[in-house]
């Protein structure tokens, strides 16, 4: 999967740096009376790799369909590489390589035939077309199945065909809707590496439910829930913001009831639970504190004041999953 491009991508011009690659302004999408995407605005700069996260039904695919000009927004404006997606649709679409969610393909065509068809639709011809199709088949590991009828391919291979199609015309912008959905761990790694390779000269917007993938490849994430954007920042920043809300694990020797009562007296602590008793008289507590506070020093001081032996105090480090859960779970 890691062959070099056959033809070198065009060098970026000044304009690529000035206009954002994707510029979404106050976009709303309704299906009948149901609002699926609600006044979202964001932009993606040239060269970025952005992860688009959200629970099922959040509106990720709908947003991506609007970005690629397949669905018009109910209101609001979208520009891709400086072209308005509605009024200058063809020019905008030329810049995009899109892989839709379930990778719809003409299943009665052969792999190579299909890629030739797609490349020609996207304006390639002659020698350039053959070179590009060969290059993307190499890159996506399709060379061995190029004569197979798409219907007979496994899901993972169809996914690769979709990816090869998205890459074939060397678009500036790649929009990939769950590119690793349905792949085995090896293939997931290959696709991840491919995206990392591509990020050197493409802008990428990808949606996924695999958060480790986002941490590995994305410089920035946008989290969407119920049609509105909940956060847009680097994974590190999001995690750091959440870390201060942390959960603390504590192991001391004390009478559980007394220790619990005294710990609760610290004002920012919301919840203290005895997790388990360990032999030797050690008690393990899980303490949840309010966001934006670090209670470890106060707890240590409390233990010292009461003479409780302390052998562990640790704060759970948050990860992107915690951020995701915090921002998108339904409040009950």
């Amino acid at each position: 999967m890691r062959y070099p491009c056959a033809t070198a991508p065009k060098p970026p011009t000044a304009a690529t740096f000035l206009t954002p690659m994707i510029d979404v302004h106050n976009v709303t999408r309704q299906f009948y009376s149901k609002t699926v995407v609600d006044r979202i605005s964001f932009h993606v700069d040239a060269g970025e790799v952005v992860g688009f996260l959200g629970p099922n039904g959040a509106g990720k695919s709908t947003t991506m369909r609007m970005l690629t000009g397949y669905l018009p927004p109910t209101s609001g404006g979208i520009k891709v590489a400086g072209h308005d997606i509605l009024t200058d649709s063809i020019a905008a679409r030329r810049e995009i390589g899109y892989m839709p969610e379930n990778v719809p393909l003409y299943t009665d065509m052969r792999v190579k035939e299909y890629l030739h068809f797609r490349a020609r639709l996207k304006g390639l011809s002659g020698k350039e077309l053959r070179i590009r199709v060969g290059a993307v088949m190499d890159r996506c590991g399709l060379t061995d199945v190029r004569r197979k009828i798409i219907r007979t391919l496994s899901r993972g291979y169809r996914q690769r065909v979709g990816l090869a199609d998205a890459l074939v015309h060397q678009p500036k912008l790649l929009i990939l809707d769950e590119p690793t959905n349905g792949l085995d761990p090896n293939q997931i790694r290959q696709v991840r590496e491919l995206i990392q390779d591509l990020s050197e000269n493409h802008t990428v917007l990808l949606s996924t439910h695999i958060l480790s993938e986002v941490e590995a490849v994305c410089g920035r994430v946008i989290i969407i829930n119920e049609g509105t954007i909940k956060a847009a920042d680097t994974p590190e920043n999001l995690v750091n913001q959440l870390r201060r809300a942390g959960t603390v694990h504590l192991e001391i020797q004390a009478v559980p009831e007394i220790a619990e009562a005294k710990l609760r007296e610290i004002s920012v602590i919301k919840k203290v639970t005895l997790e388990c008793e360990i032999e030797g008289g050690w008690k393990r507590f899980v303490i949840r504190a309010e966001s934006g506070t670090d209670v470890r020093q106060k707890i240590v001081a409390l233990c010292a004041a009461n003479g409780w032996p302390l052998r562990e105090i640790s704060r759970l480090s948050a990860n992107l999953e915690d951020v995701f859960v915090e921002l998108t779970q339904r409040q009950i």
């Binding site: 369909r65 030329r94 639709l121 996207k122 199609d165």
Partner: peptide, 14 residues
């Protein structure tokens, strides 16, 4: 039925 119009119409095709 196959959803292939999504592929066709997100290429530069009218």
């Amino acid at each position: 039925k196959m959803g292939t119009l999504e592929m066709l119409l997100t290429a530069p095709v009218r």
